[in-house]
Design a protein around this nucleic acid. Structure first.
Length: 466
RNA sequence: UCCAGCUUAGCUCAGUCGGUAGAGCAGGCGGCUGUUAACCGCCGGGUCGCAGGUUCGAGUCCUGCAGCUGGAGCCA
């Protein structure tokens, strides 16, 4: 007897006629008067469940198999045989079915063999991985995460684990979550009556990171090709289909590189991930096409082939001005592109992913490299049809004098960034990188409408249940 | 945070002009069948989000609140 996965069973492994054990959770049970019950058992190893055929002559059939309902945990031992029915190549002819865990009250089990709304399933986040949709999303997410690590490993990048807790109070844009061990009921005070943060655990104010970029730049200027991949936190009061308060971000950083190299990396990297999903998760992607988004597969195939459009910010503004489209928000050089503008560019004008490059300096962060025109910085956004900004990146300002000017203009305290300035004092080189939200990528690949369905337990304003 | 919409059975929804509640699925029982989110019959299942108001009478109209969803801003 060998314990095998549902995936193995469906492919006939280890061999036809072998005695095998499969373990998993019941999706459906159908009884036949021929003296059989058909159990669909799922274990997450692939999209499809395996069919276990249980004859009513099994020991204890009436008290076990005959009472199984959706969600029950079972261990089934039997012979792996070619299926007599349609719909699967192999099935398990059971000798023994052991109920490992019953469903207490089948009538109120939240996951039924039917279409549930995604909104409802968010309310039962602990049970939604048992559905087709969330099983598929989980496997695609795993494939994407693995492909990300694999891509970087293959290309000589080192994964750098930058800290989750940070002391810098303005790592970039974004509201921060405070990390504190102080007793809120009686806060320590300084003689001036202010909160005495020296009494904090770390002896200073600390927060959850909004980006590992600044920290990873230091490793970039030693190891040449690096990336971070970890949780990131933004305390923004954003209530949209594409924002989370806690999400996973990938941030590669490359030395001796400019913005064009950065865009090349972003495009090559995304295409690699798309290829991996198409190759490894055909079953799950076919389900998304059927139930979630008809174009899920063809979109990935198209993106994997097409070259991304590249356009200067200034040129993008001209395109928008000449488009004849009526936009709700004004289009003018110096203003940031709005969602509607980005959608027009990527969905209508170019009809493929677009990299918009070299934005006005005034609307971008202090660490982005000032171009020779002194008006723009070497920043880029990768826009994708249907989801908008999927990647944001830039070449970093490697010249100390220019960085200091930019920090002053942005009212950033240079004293808090001594170590960051050091990188420009000791062997500085041009370098660049970008940030990619993992959940945005998962949302996009699966064709989901809401980012809250791309992460197991979504954290959004007012919601940290589970 | 701003704007809009939604909230009826375990789930998905219907509910007309204001007259005291319906279907499908799920569950239970029975029938039928190597079945494929099976099919057929019967049965149980409701504080119509909460609090007020109008009315002889409110699921339905009005006000407030809450939750959810969508759009916007911010961004990955």
């Amino acid at each position: 007897m060998s314990v095998i996965t549902v995936k193995q069973a469906l492919s006939g492994a280890p061999s036809e006629g072998a005695t095998v054990t499969v373990r998993g959770w019941i999706r459906t049970r159908r009884d036949s008067k021929a003296g059989l019950s058909f159990l669909h058992v799922s274990d997450g190893s692939c999209f499809a469940p395996v069919q276990v055929v249980a004859p009513n002559t099994l020991d204890g059939y009436a008290d076990s198999v005959a009472k199984l309902s959706a969600g029950c945990a079972v261990e089934c031992t039997g012979t792996l045989v070619r299926s007599q029915g349609k719909g699967q190549a192999f099935e398990v002819q059971a000798h023994q079915v052991t109920v490992v865990g019953w469903v207490e009250d089948p009538e109120t089990y939240p996951i039924q063999p039917k279409a549930h709304s995604l909104e409802y399933l968010r309310e039962v986040a602990h049970l939604r991985p048992r559905t087709n949709t969330f099983g598929a999303v989980s496997r695609v997410r795993q494939t994407i995460a693995h492909a990300i690590h694999h891509y970087f490993h293959e290309h000589g990048f080192q994964w750098v684990n930058t800290p989750i807790i940070t002391a810098s109070d303005c790592e970039g844009a974004g509201q921060l979550f405070r990390v504190s061990t102080l007793d809120f009921a009686s806060l320590p005070r300084t003689p001036e009556g202010k909160i005495d943060f020296t009494r904090e655990f770390f002896g200073r104010e600390t927060f959850l990171t909004v980006s590992g970029q600044l920290a990873v730049e230091a490793y970039c200027l030693a190891l040449s090709k690096v990336y971070t991949f970890g949780p990131t936190f933004r305390a923004e009061n954003s209530n949209t289909t594409r924002h989370l308060a806690e999400f996973w971000m990938v941030e590669p950083e490359i030395a001796f590189a400019n913005l064009s190299d950065d865009a090349d990396l972003a495009e090559d990297f995304l295409k690699y991930v798309f290829r991996a999903v198409l190759a490894e998760r055909a079953d799950d992607m076919a389900f998304f096409v059927e139930r979630v988004d008809k174009t899920a597969i063809e979109r990935l195939e198209r993106l994997e082939r097409a070259s991304f459009a590249r356009v200067e910010y200034s040129e993008a503004v001209t395109i928008l001005e000449k488009s004849g489209k009526k936009f709700e928000f004004p289009v003018k050089w110096g203003l940031d592109l709005q969602t509607e503008h980005e959608r027009f560019l990527t969905e209508e004008h170019f009809a493929r992913p677009v990299v918009v490059m070299n934005y006005p300096a005034a609307i971008k962060a202090f660490y982005m490299r000032l171009n020779d025109d002194e008006q723009t910085v070497a920043a880029m956004d990768v826009l994708a049809p249907g989801i908008g900004e999927i990647i944001g990146g830039s070449q970093r300002e490697e010249r100390l004098d220019v960085l200091d000017r930019r920090m002053a203009a942005s009212h950033v305290d240079p004293g808090a960034y001594g170590w960051y300035r050091d990188l420009r004092r000791y062997g500085t080189v041009p370098h660049a990188g970008f940030g990619l939200g993992l959940e945005r990528l998962v949302t996009y690949v699966c064709g989901l409408a809401n980012i809250r369905d791309a992460i197991p337990y979504p954290r959004t304003p007012g919601n940290a249940a589970f």
